[in-house]
């Protein structure tokens, strides 16, 4: 079983988001970067599958060297080696093209990633990679079992879930409860230092989208407090003032 896990390097979920350079760049000062939480689930499941079925787990990241600590963490969690494509992930199409190019050279049985990155929230890279490689893609996958060349998976659909089985290779966007997040142990951290991390240059491609600038949502007005003993006033306000019921 050859598994590729694609990880993103994103601001922690609790990070306060601000921008610099005339609102054209994310202000990274004081922001803690982490492996995308959904990618972390994908990685955890990949490591479990490797332990059960044998094979290898390769971690792939599209981004700069500032992501190396997160890549090392993925290695410490149990991935065997890592590839970093040395390019700013400009947009979904660009990122997927880079991933598909590397994945296409290596015949992975499974390509796992989070259902979406928590910075740009697109949730389309798995579908793009699947189509670029000509293999099926499914997301968001909440359960994954492999038997031989067949994957049985459960995925969330609008208001419920569905199970299906499909033949490998597959690209899957993952979310909880596919697995539990893993915390690297001391042995993992030690061995991660010497595991291979290969840096490759991106392929050239046409630019489809260009970010112009960023903005923050308008600040919220003050919260109108209603005394608990007059709770029913709330319903009146929702009807006459907010006009939402």
């Amino acid at each position: 079983m050859k598994i590729l896990v694609c990880i993103t390097n994103v601001p922690d979920t609790t990070a306060k988001i601000t921008f610099t350079d005339n609102n054209t760049k994310l202000n990274k000062a004081g922001v803690q970067f982490i492996i995308g939480p959904y990618d972390d689930y994908a990685l955890a499941r990949a490591v479990e599958l490797k332990e059960k079925l044998g094979g290898s787990v390769t971690v792939l990241h599209v981004g700069g060297a500032d992501a190396d600590p997160q890549i090392r963490k993925a290695l410490a969690i149990g991935a065997d080696d890592a590839i970093r494509i040395n390019a700013e992930p400009l947009d979904s199409y660009f990122t997927a093209s880079q991933i598909a190019h590397v994945a296409g050279q290596n015949n992975y049985d499974l390509i796992l990633m989070g259902r979406e990155s928590i910075d740009f929230n697109s949730g389309v890279v798995h579908g793009l990679v699947g189509e670029m490689l000509g293999i099926p893609s499914y997301s968001p996958v909440m359960k994954l079992e492999i038997e031989g060349t067949t994957a049985t998976l459960a995925r969330e659909i609008d208001g419920g879930k569905e199970t299906l089985s499909a033949t490998l290779p597959l690209v899957l966007g993952c979310q909880e409860p596919i697995s539990e997040w893993k915390i690297p142990n001391m042995r993992g951290i030690m061995t991660a230092r010497t595991k291979p991390l290969v840096v490759v240059e991106p392929i050239n491609m046409e630019e489809f989208t260009v970010p112009e600038n960023y903005s923050l949502p308008a600040p919220k007005g003050a919260c109108k407090m209603i005394p608990a003993d007059q709770a029913e006033t709330l319903i009146k306000l929702l009807k006459t003032e907010a006009k939402v019921i």
């Binding site: 601001p11 979920t13 988001i17 921008f19 947009d91 928590i118 910075d119 740009f120 929230n121 630019e207 489809f208 989208t209 260009v210 970010p211 112009e212 600038n213 960023y214 903005s215 923050l216 949502p217």
Partner: peptide
């Protein structure tokens, strides 16, 4: 973007 914490203006070419 950033799960509703911000917005981005993007040109599609």
């Amino acid at each position: 973007i950033f799960t509703g914490k911000a917005f981005s203006n993007v040109e599609i070419k």
